[in-house]
């Protein structure tokens, strides 16, 4: 996956300053957009987190008041614990499934294209539509799709999203269903990048299939997997749509996530933008940790700055 930069810009010539300036001018509109949509709000969020708001203006400076009241609330710790559970489950389910998929699909010859395509399709669906679709699957009534299927096997109807212990793993299953095909493709590409001669050489040395998996395939996957795992943690940590649409955080806050809590502060009937901003800062700090980890892991593989 190394990519060498083949081009080095020539920097000779007298109009060096003008050239720099014109280059910046070309980038300026885009930089302004980034500032407006991404960097600015992030910084403003920090400021806002120390204030109360009225309408959409800052009202009173409250110091760490917003943070204090967030940390004091049981809701926050529930949301935090749940978010960690989302992450753990997504490592158990969401991380391993694509690897398994890549391994088995990678072994097929005939129909490989079909399997790859089929498993990728859920990924192109709008997230919201996919989530709403699953309300019908997880309904606890006997018309729920899973209950219909269970009935064929004589199993009594079950409840799903209304079970405290099930709701998080089920939500993770939904997002795995949606995303696994795309992730599997990345693994497959990584695997197909393995030099076939390695396998052949290993065979000559008398390595059986399992040995080849252990000593050639697994290391390749691990290499890719460490990056993907951190990316996945970062994504799962921001889980919002699923609890928002499927359960409203219930039952008994069992699926409330940090992002959804933040959303609720702002738009859930209290209009507490300051508190929402504080929650946003807290989430950002946690993500920042993961991001640093990511850059560390990633630095070994790519050097972005050329």
């Amino acid at each position: 996956m190394e990519r060498t930069v083949t081009y080095r810009q020539s920097r000779r010539g007298g109009g060096k300053l003008t050239q720099h300036l014109s280059s910046w001018l070309i980038m300026l509109p885009s930089i302004l957009l980034f500032a407006f949509f991404l960097w600015g709000p992030l910084a403003q969020g920090i400021v806002m987190s120390f204030f109360t708001t009225r309408n959409v203006s800052l009202d009173k400076f409250v110091g760490i008041g917003n943070y204090a009241s967030i940390f004091k609330s049981q809701e926050f710790w529930q949301a935090f614990g749940n978010t960690v559970m989302y992450t753990v489950w997504s490592l158990v389910i969401g991380f391993l499934v694509p690897i398994a998929m890549a391994l088995v699909i990678g072994e097929t010859t005939r129909g490989k294209g079909f399997f790859r395509t089929a498993s990728y399709v859920p990924n192109v669906l709008p997230g919201l539509a996919a989530i709403i679709l699953y309300t019908a699957f997880f309904s606890a009534e006997e018309t729920g799709v899973f209950n219909i299927i269970l009935k064929w096997f004589g199993v009594e109807r079950q409840s799903y999203l209304t079970e405290m212990g099930l709701v998080i793993p089920l939500i993770v299953i939904i997002s795995t269903w949606k995303g696994a095909g795309a992730t599997a493709l990345i693994y497959m590409a990584g695997l197909s990048g393995i030099n076939p001669e390695l396998y052949e050489a290993a065979t000559i040395d008398g390595a059986g299939i399992w040995k080849r998996v252990r000593h050639i395939t697994m290391p390749a996957i691990f290499n890719l997997g460490s990056t993907l795992m951190i990316l996945q943690i970062i994504t799962v940590f921001q889980i919002l749509y699923e609890p928002m649409v499927l359960t409203k955080g219930g039952p008994d806050n069992a699926s409330l996530s940090l992002m959804y809590l933040m959303w609720r502060y702002a738009f859930g009937g209290r209009i507490e933008f300051g508190k929402a901003a504080a929650a946003g800062v807290i989430i950002s700090l946690i993500l920042l940790l993961f991001t640093l980890l990511y850059t560390r892991v990633n630095r070994r593989k790519n050097d972005w700055e050329g």
Partner: peptide, 29 residues
């Protein structure tokens, strides 16, 4: 390609945004 002086700052900021998506600061935005 152009890589004017100081582009690395922007470049790092962009990479940072890749991992720090906009939803977190949706309220200020």
């Amino acid at each position: 390609i152009l890589k004017p002086k100081g582009y690395k700052i922007v470049s790092s900021l962009v990479m940072f945004s890749l991992l720090m998506p906009a939803t977190i600061s949706i309220v200020p935005l």
